[in-house]
């Protein structure tokens, strides 16, 4: 349907959207969590390892990646749920460096030379789109559920949330664990797209990209990522090779500009609230009309 280049590009955009969602969920609960790349690496390596050694089908590898990501995301979450602000941000970032040195020393994961031989999945784009839709619908429903409201309450005022009966500790752990699931899935798709993984890929640069996309798109709604990911990723792909080395700086400049000019990002809460209220109000009016 698409050329190889386009397919490759689109899949990476989807990977980024999933990762940005992975960063968004803890943010909704008031945490600046930088463990997304860590969980992505876990998902990538689990999927890659299973495909390479056992030739398991794509979807089985994804499910395994989710499972392992969930467990390895849950354990540190028990610690992070007791921290906040800058402490969470810094200590979760440290997970990337720890994992990187662990992978470098594990020969069955390819060590420093990287992992090759991940099998080709012919319908990867289709799978990626399906996963994107499933996760997107799930996240939407979650955001508008009892749990989503509890997270938002924690973000606004943890003590207030607690006095409404929210168990802030376990709700935070849940947010971080769910974030790991999104990131691990993104990692698995990424592994099948690249078909070769290096420990250094899952680096600080990746994290910077994700955070830029989150803040540029809008960190309060899931729709921001759908705009910012393709936009920013095409900047770094389609820009002339001569300045591609500068993409880190360009991202940083864009991030700073957006935060100064439009602090909530492109898609703001007011925008989504307007759309949502338009529909809910209309719906309830119709319901009342039917009753009368």
């Amino acid at each position: 349907m698409f050329s190889t280049g386009t397919t490759y590009f689109l899949i990476l955009v989807i990977v980024y959207i999933l990762l940005v969602w992975g960063a968004l969920i803890p943010f909704r609960a008031g945490l600046l969590y930088n463990g997304t790349v860590y969980c992505m690496a876990i998902g990538g390596y689990v999927a890659g390892f299973l495909s390479k050694n056992f030739d398991l089908p794509f979807i089985v590898c994804v499910l395994a990646a989710i499972l392992v990501g969930l467990i390895l995301g849950f354990i540190p979450a028990l610690g992070f749920a007791r921290t906040n602000g800058i402490v969470t941000a810094i200590s979760s970032m440290a997970l990337i460096f720890i994992l990187e040195s662990v992978i470098r020393n594990l020969d069955f994961l390819g060590g420093s030379t990287g992992m090759t031989g991940i099998h080709k999945e012919n319908h990867l784009l289709l799978w990626a789109v399906i996963l994107l839709i499933i996760f997107g619908v799930f996240l939407y429903r979650l955001n508008n559920s009892r749990i989503g409201r509890a997270w938002e309450a924690i973000q606004t005022d943890p003590q207030m949330a607690q006095s409404l009966g929210v168990n802030t500790f376990w709700m935070t752990v849940a947010a971080l664990t769910l974030s790991s699931v999104f990131s691990a899935t993104a990692g698995a798709v990424y592994a099948f797209n690249m078909r070769v993984l290096y420990p250094g890929t899952f680096s600080f640069t990746f994290l910077l990209n994700i955070m830029t996309m989150l803040f540029v798109g809008g960190r309060y709604t899931q729709w921001g990522a759908i705009i910012s990911c393709p936009l920013l990723w095409s900047i770094s792909v389609f820009m002339p090779t001569s300045i591609q080395k500068l993409s880190n700086y360009i991202y940083a400049v864009i991030l700073i500009l957006i935060l100064m000019l439009r602090p909530e990002g492109i898609v703001t809460r007011r925008m989504t609230n307007k759309v949502k209220n338009f529909f809910t109000a209309k719906l309830s009016r119709r319901r009342q009309g039917a009753k009368a």
Partner: peptide, 12 residues
């Protein structure tokens, strides 16, 4: 919870 709607506050 200032950014949430009146309804969402009540639901909480």
């Amino acid at each position: 919870l200032a950014n949430m709607t009146v309804m969402e506050n009540l639901q909480l």
